[in-house]
Design a protein around this nucleic acid. Sequence first.
RNA 1: GGAUCCUUAGCUCAGUUGGCUAGAGCGUACGAUUCACAUUCGUAAGGUCACAGGUUCAAGCCCUGUAGGAUCCACCA
Length: 899
Amino acid sequence: MKFASSYEPNEYEADIYACWEAADEFLPGGRVFHGQPSEKTQSHYSIVMPPPNANGNLHIGHGLTIAIEDALTRYHRLRGEMTWYIPGADHAGFETWVVYERALEKQGHTRFEYSRDELYARVWDFVQEQRGNMELQVRALGASCSWKDLTFTLDENVVRRVYATFEKMWNDGMVYRGEKLVNYCTKHQTAFADIEVEHKDEKGKLWDIAYKVVQEQSSASSEDALLTQRTSSTSRSGAPSSSHLATPEQPLELVVSTTRPETLFGDVAVAVNPEDKRYKNLIGKAVRLPLTDREIPIIADEHADPEYGTGAVKITPAHDNDDFEVGERHNLPRIQVISFDGKMLDNCGPEYAGLTTAECRKKVLKDLKEQGLLRGEKEIVHSVAHCYKCDTVIEPMLKEQWFVDVKKLAKVAIEHLEAGEIKFFPANKKNVLINYLKGLKDWNISRQIPWGIAIPMFRADDGEWIFDSRTNLAEIEIGGKRYKRDEDTFDTWFSSSHWPIVCTDWEEGAVNPYYPLNVMETGADILFAWVARMIMMGLYVTGEVPFSEVYLHGLVLDAHGQKMSKSKGNVINPMELVGKYGSDAFRMGILRGRSAGMNQAFSEQSVVAGRNLCNKLWNVSRFIQEIVDSEQSEQSLSHETLNPGEDWICREINEAKWAIESQMKNYRFSEAVETLYSLIWDKYADWFIETEKIYRNTGLLKETLMAILKMLHPFAPFVTEAIWQNLSWTEGLLISAKWPADFKFDPISAENFEKLMGVVSTTRSTLQALTEAHKGFSKAETVMLYGDDSLVDDNQVLVQKLTGVASVISCEGQPRGLRLPVANHEVYLDVDADVVADYAQALENKILAVGRELDSLNMRMMNPNYVDKAPAELVNETRTLIVEKEELIERLKKEREAI
RNA sequence: GGAUCCUUAGCUCAGUUGGCUAGAGCGUACGAUUCACAUUCGUAAGGUCACAGGUUCAAGCCCUGUAGGAUCCACCA
C-alpha cells in the first residue's frame, strides 16, 4: 500500500518538483520538443513572470501571482500547447539600493566615499550573497517555469536591448537632455518619475506675506533693473482679504499666500489673475522681496486664482511645478535656493544659508513677523509629495536629466488599444489606461543612484552629448575628442518596459512564435508604471503590442480587508502557509474568492479548505486503488457505464470540464476552483464513490479519477502528481498528460440518478426529523417501503446504503407508515403509529409555536400607539415578520396534512 | 478637483449578454461513528441582494439619484 491514510505535502513536494525539473518538463514542449523546430500546427503559449526582487523574499502578492500564472501555464500545457513560462529576477534598482545604503550607513560609511563603479561592484556582490531565497520559494510554490531561461534584469542581453532602444530613440529625437523641475528626494539624492511619487493629504498652513509695492521708474528690461521708488515704509495694517487697491497717496503692498515661505528667496515675480479687479492697476509694477534687497515684477497670469488665499501668488520657478510653467510663459529667470541635500544655498543670504528647509521656514516666519510683514496664517489640507521609500518630502528641483518625449509613444499605444488589440481583465482597465496615456507627460529616466543600468551617454567639455555603449569606461576618446560618461543610471521602468521583448529573445526580422505574449499577468497597482510602458516600448521596438491579453490582480488584504503592513503586524507570509498546509492548499486558498483587479481579503481558512480538498482527493484515490488491488484479474480502462450513478458522474465530469475551459479562457480562477471542489467533493466522493462501493466498476473508476486529476492539476500540481505516481495503472508524468476527452453516457440514465438522489435526500431529512421527534427512534431499525416504483425497485441496495435504513423492500398491498414527501415517487417509512404521531406532534408543536409568535406580532400591530409612535423601521419589520410567519405556518400545515 | 471600483447569509466572497426557488467556503445548531478520509459523514437554521426612484412581462443584474467604503490620477499657491 503506497497510500498513507492522509496526504502529507511535505513528504512529496520537493521530490516531485525535482522530478519535473530533471525531466525538463518546464521547457516549452517539454523534453520531447526542446531543441527541435516545433510542429507548425502546434500552438504556442507564452507568459512571463513579473520578476521578483532577486535578493528578496516572496510576499503574499507573489504567491497570488504564481498561483495564477502557473495555473494558466499548466492548463495550456495539458491542452497540448508549446508552453513557455519565463521566470525573472529583478535587480530592483532603487529598492535594493535603499537596502544597501542602509547597510552601508550602519557600518558608518556613506555613498559619497566611493565612486559609482565601486558602489556598483559592491551592490553586485551584496545581491549575489543575498540571492537564492526567492528562486527556492518560487519552486516551493510549484511554478513550472523554464529556469534555463531565467532572465535577470541586469543580464547582458537586457542591457544590450535597452541600449539599442535608447540609441534608436536618441537618433529619432525621442530622448532629450533637459533642465526641468524633477521630483527630488533630498535623503536619497535622486530624482524620480512622477509616478514614483506618493501624494498624501496633509495638514499645513497657508501664510499671507506682505510684499511692498515699488513704483516703476523706468522701462528697464532686466529683472535687476527694476528700479525702486521707495514708498513710505509705514506698513498698512488690515486683513489680507481686504482691498489692496492702489491709490496714489497710500503706501502700497501686495499680500501673497504661500505654504512654503522659505522658498521666497527664489521668487522672481508675483502673479495676479488678469481678471482680478483688486490688482489690475498693479500689473506691470514691482514689489520688494522681503528679507532681501531684490525687486520683482507683478505679472498677470491665469494661474493665480482670485478665490484662493489673497489671490496673489509668489512665483518660484526653480522650486514649484506650476511656477515653473508660469516662468516659462513669462520668460522669467529660475533661481535655485535649495541644494540637492536639502539645505538653503548661499544666495539666501548668510543668515539663512546652510539651514534645512524646515529650519529656514521657521526663521523666515519669525523674521517676517518681526518686520510686520506676516499678515495671517490659516490651517489648510493640501496634497504633499513624498518619497515612497523614506517618506521625505519630495522637493521639486531644477535639474538636467534625460527625458523621453512620450507624446508619440503614447499616441501609438492609444491607437492600438482603441483598436482592441489587447484584451483586458477586468475590461474597464483599458479605458483607465487610455485615459492615463492621454495626459502623460515627458518621462524623466535619469536616476542618481549607482545600482542600475548606466546611461550610455558621454559629454565633451563643449557640452556635446554622444551615445556610446561602452559604459564600463568613465571616459572615452573619439576622433581626438574626450567625452565623459554621464554618471546616472536608468529608471528601472525604462528597462522593465522591455520585459516581454527580452524574455522571449525577440530579434528584428526573426520569426518568434512566443512574441507577442499570450498574456501579461501582473498587479493592477502597476498598470501605469509597467503595463503602459511595456505597451509603448513594445510597439516602438517591435511594431507589435507585446501581449494580447492583460490580466490584473488586486492587492491581497488581510482577513478583515485591511492592507497588510509591517507596522500593523498583519502580514501573512506565504511560505509559512506552504510549510503548514502544502503548496496546493495555499494556491487553491489564495485563488478562492478572488476576481480580477480587486483588492480582496485573504485568510488562512481558505487555505485549510484547500488542504482538506487535497486530503479528500488523496483518500478517494487511495480507496480506488484498494478496489483495483482487490480485483482478481487486471481490468482495463473503460468508459463503460453500467448503472445510473455512472452515467450521471460522466455527465457531471463533462460539464465541469466545459465549465473549467470557459472559466480559464475568461480568467475566472476562483470559479474554476469552485467547480473542481464541488465536482470532487459533492459529486464524485459523496455520491459516485458511494455507489461504487456496490458496483465496483474498476475500469470507469480508473478512467474518471484520471480525468479529475488532470483537471485539478493546474491548481494543485503536487498532490495530483503524487497521486498519479502512486496509482498502479498510470504512466508517465501527469504534468505532461493530455487534457481529458469527453465521456460517453446515457442521458436518461443520468437523469434517473438525479431522481434517486432526490428520494435519498428527502429520506435522510425525514429520518433526521424523526430522530429529533421520537425518543428511541433508530433509522438502522427502520424499513423503507416502496409502491409501484421501478427506479427504487432497480436500486434497492443503493437506496438502502445511502439512507442507512435497515432495508428497502417492495410493499405488498396497502402501504403503511409515513409517506415521504417526494414528488412522483411512492415511498414510505414503515414506522409505528406512535412514531408517526410524534412526528405529527412535532410538526403540530412547531405550528403552534409559530402561531403564538404570530399572534403576539398581530397584537402589536393592532395597537394604534405602536403603529403611530414606534419608529417606522420597526413597524415595517413587524409587518415583514408577520408575512414570513404566515407563510411558514402554511408550509408546515401542508406537510402535516400529507401524513 | 477628476476617475474607477465596491456595498448580497455572522465573516470572506461568487452570481458573465436581465429568466433566481439568490450560491460557496468558513462559522453556528442538531445528529452519526470502527469497513478511503474527524483534514470524516448526514441534516438544519441563517438573506427587505446599501437606500430612493425609474425602465421591463420579469431587476441582485439595466438607467437616474442618495449614502457609506476603497483605490488611482491631478499643479491647487
